[in-house]
Structure formats: structure tokens, C-alpha cells
């Protein structure tokens, strides 16, 4: 009996606030598949959604806040720093980050610190201080330098995006967010996580996914280079011969 009440109490404390609020988060992506063809120069996706309320939902005086996190396939990255060795600037120290997202977009309707406290952000794994957490094993201050460089360089290439104004509420309950994928975005599965906040607390969440795939010539070239290296090389060499021969025929003067 005591056992049951403990579970009941646990359930009450955990689920009660959400049950009482009754908000339901619904979202949809404009496309779940991004095709990388030879003319691929990046893509722009739109995430639409609305916050569904019912009669029992408590009013939120400060309105809703939204954080959208898009995470690309995880990769192992090496950050290297150049140093002067014997008068030459060359790569010296490096740090390896296992499981760093290849692509990461943290989109919200206002700066994260205004949406939730740092503690909440940490617990929910949102924001750049928490998500690309290649904390292997524990980051020393010097390691942080390398991690910051990784984030900075990825941002320069458009692979890491932090935009505290890219989620717009069209009405108090209806929102849209633009997700930019640069041309360099690697192929694979991307997770899209939408988290709804009110008064500093996470009250609903929903997840979805999108896939970046190579198609057509791109796919053919990439897969044959990987799977049939010798024949691919032979084909390229023959193509070179043919191009050279063709030129000597076209431009023949003697």
C-alpha cells in the first residue's frame, strides 16, 4: 500500500503540471527528405506548428516560447591548432571530439536565457553550451578552446546555426521556423526536436526527422567511388584518355 502511494505521489508530481496544462504541440516539416543532386546549393525547410489548448488549459500570461533543435548525423571531428615549430606554422596540438553533430541548428523565438534558466537548458540539452557536448572525458579549460574553435568554424560554414529570432509566432498559438541546410550539409538522418516553454518550464515537446540523401549522378559517383574503387579509377583514367584523344582530333592541325 505504501509502495503504491509512493508511485502515485511520484506520478502526481511528475505528470500533474503537464496534465493540468493540457497543451498539445503539433508540428510538421515542409519536407522530410532533402535531395542532393548536382545542382544542390543548400535547402531551406519550413517547420510549421501550433499549440493546441483545451478548456482546462491554464492561461499563460507571458505567452509561449519555442526552441527548435535540428541535429545532423554524429561524427568524429578533430580540431587542430597551428603552432610555430622550427619557424614553420604547422598543425601541432589537436583534440578529438567523438559524436559531435555534423549539423546543428538551435532556433528559438528569443534568446535562450530569456526562455529558461541555465539549469533547465542543461537538463533539456538545449543550446550550444549543452548540445555539441563532445565532453570526452571531461573538458579542461584548454580543451574548451578547441571546442569553441570547432563551434566557431562550423558556424562560419553554416553548419552550426544559432538564431534566437528564427521562430515566429504568427498568432499566439501558431508558429513557423525556417531551417537552413547549407550545401555542405552531410547526408544522413537529422533529428528535429521542438520544445515548448511557458514561464521558464518545458511544458510540451515533439520530435520529427528529416533525411538528406544524394540522388542521381551524385549518388552514382559517390557510391561507385566508395564500393568499386578500382573500376571507378579505371573509368576515370579512360575518361581522361578519351578527353585527350577527343581534343587531339578536334584541334588537329597537321
Amino acid at each position: 500500500m505504501k509502495y503504491f502511494s509512493a508511485i502515485a505521489l511520484f506520478a502526481a508530481t511528475f505528470f500533474a503540471p503537464q496534465a493540468a496544462s493540457g497543451e498539445k504541440l503539433i508540428s510538421s516539416l515542409s519536407s522530410h527528405q532533402v535531395l542532393v543532386s548536382s545542382s544542390f546549393a543548400g535547402a531551406e525547410l519550413v517547420l510549421f506548428g501550433s499549440v493546441e489548448r483545451d478548456g482546462a488549459t491554464v492561461p499563460r500570461r507571458n505567452g509561449y516560447n519555442l526552441v527548435v533543435t535540428v541535429t545532423g548525423p554524429r561524427q568524429t571531428m578533430v580540431t587542430r591548432r597551428k603552432d610555430r615549430v622550427f619557424g614553420i606554422w604547422t598543425n601541432a596540438e589537436s583534440r578529438t571530439f567523438v559524436g559531435a553533430p555534423s549539423y546543428l541548428a538551435v532556433l528559438s523565438n528569443k534568446p535562450l536565457n530569456e526562455i529558461a534558466s541555465i539549469g533547465v537548458q542543461q537538463r533539456l540539452d538545449i543550446g550550444f553550451d549543452n548540445v555539441p557536448a563532445p565532453q570526452t572525458p571531461a573538458l579542461q579549460p584548454t580543451d574548451l578552446l578547441f571546442r569553441d574553435a570547432l563551434i566557431r568554424l562550423k558556424k562560419e560554414r553554416g553548419l552550426y546555426i544559432e538564431e534566437p529570432n528564427s521562430v515566429t509566432f504568427l498568432t499566439p498559438n501558431l508558429f513557423r521556423a525556417g531551417i537552413r541546410l547549407p550545401a555542405e550539409a552531410p547526408v544522413g538522418n537529422y533529428e528535429v526536436e521542438v520544445k515548448l516553454f511557458a514561464d521558464g518550464a518545458n511544458i510540451a515537446r515533439t520530435a520529427s526527422a528529416l533525411e538528406v540523401v544524394k540522388v542521381g549522378v551524385e549518388q552514382f559517383v559517390a557510391s561507385s567511388a566508395r564500393d568499386h574503387g578500382f573500376w571507378y579509377g579505371l573509368g576515370t583514367a579512360l575518361m581522361a584518355l578519351l578527353t585527350g584523344w577527343f581534343a587531339s582530333v578536334v584541334f588537329r592541325r597537321d
Binding site: T76, R84, W89, L150
Partner: peptide, 19 residues
């Protein structure tokens, strides 16, 4: 020149593998 002059960007990142 690239080897002897201090580059503007000291850091570089490289992909080692997927996971």
C-alpha cells in the same frame, strides 16, 4: 609564405569518421 607567416585562423577542423 603560408608556412612562415602567422595565419589568421590557427584552428582547423577535420572529419575523421561517422559514428
Amino acid at each position: 609564405i603560408d608556412l612562415l607567416v602567422q595565419p589568421n585562423e590557427l584552428f582547423s577542423i577535420r572529419l575523421v569518421g561517422g559514428s
